[in-house]
Design a protein around this nucleic acid. Structure first.
Lengths: 138, 138
DNA sequence: TATTGTTATACTCTATAACTATA
DNA sequence: TATAGTTATAGAGTATAACAATA
């Protein structure tokens, strides 16, 4: 048995550190973690249904609704019934939403660099690459 | 701005996958995640106070108490007042607790290998090493 | 009848604050 | 009075189930 800690425990702690780094940035822009996740998901392109969006970011569809309400109220997303099937809401970023997401993501990336700064560049690169491979959509 | 996802989002998903992998193992042994974390922490050696143990695994001291109650009831840990300061509880693993932890950890390590199996061995090694470095106790 | 989105509700997890026992 | 542990309670976050609108 290796001497290293369990992967789960290490991921838990690193995830918590990441969240602590992101929290002040997000709250400065009055965004919850889920609101930011929504903006990130919609940046890739509009989504056909709210349920698909929820599944995509690993959230429950019911808990997304107040988030979407707020983002719409602030003019950061568009959310209108699909003319072809009026049960469905088409979702997309507004220009303001796109701007806000870009600004926040820049700050978060800077924070990530700070967190990773202690490691050799080669390890850092392998770390991010492997993490991306392990979490790739299946 | 890179095209990769945010580190936080990737860690979140991978952490969730890890938890899903561990959950059936833990519940087969009737252990919660926190109970397993306690056994892991105590395996390194006995702890002087419950508060120190809680801080060590990143938990609140109040939420550890029912966990410790249960572990003690099952004879997996020792928990006795320090004769030198009877406010304090000395905590340690029993032989049964040590055995159970070892068995569970072996299953979890096997699950980790399965999760990492898709990556080149060199990346895998760098990933675990970097993760350990980033989460080292500061 | 099935599906999307919504609301209401219940449940779990977590932290805060009050209490006890020792010092 | 201060500290370790405990208990009680309230709050946040989450999921479950019922509901309305549309197909």
């Amino acid at each position: 048995m290796d001497e290293r800690e369990d992967l789960g425990a290490m991921l838990f702690r690193l995830g918590r550190d990441l969240l602590a780094m992101e929290q002040p940035i997000l709250s400065r822009h009055e965004l919850s973690m889920w609101a930011y996740a929504v903006l990130t998901a919609l940046r890739e392109g509009p989504t056909r249904t709210q349920a698909a969006l929820a599944a995509g970011i690993g959230a429950d569809k019911t808990r997304l609704i107040p988030v979407l309400d707020e983002l719409q109220r602030r003019g950061l997303i568009e959310r209108e019934p699909d003319p072809a099937d009026r049960r469905v809401r088409l979702l997309g970023l507004t220009a303001a939403g796109r701007r806000l997401h870009r600004a926040v993501q820049e700050e978060i990336r800077a924070g990530e660099q700070r967190l990773l700064a202690g490691c050799p560049a080669q390890d850092r690169e392998a770390f991010v690459r492997t993490l991306a491979a392990l979490t790739a959509r299946r």
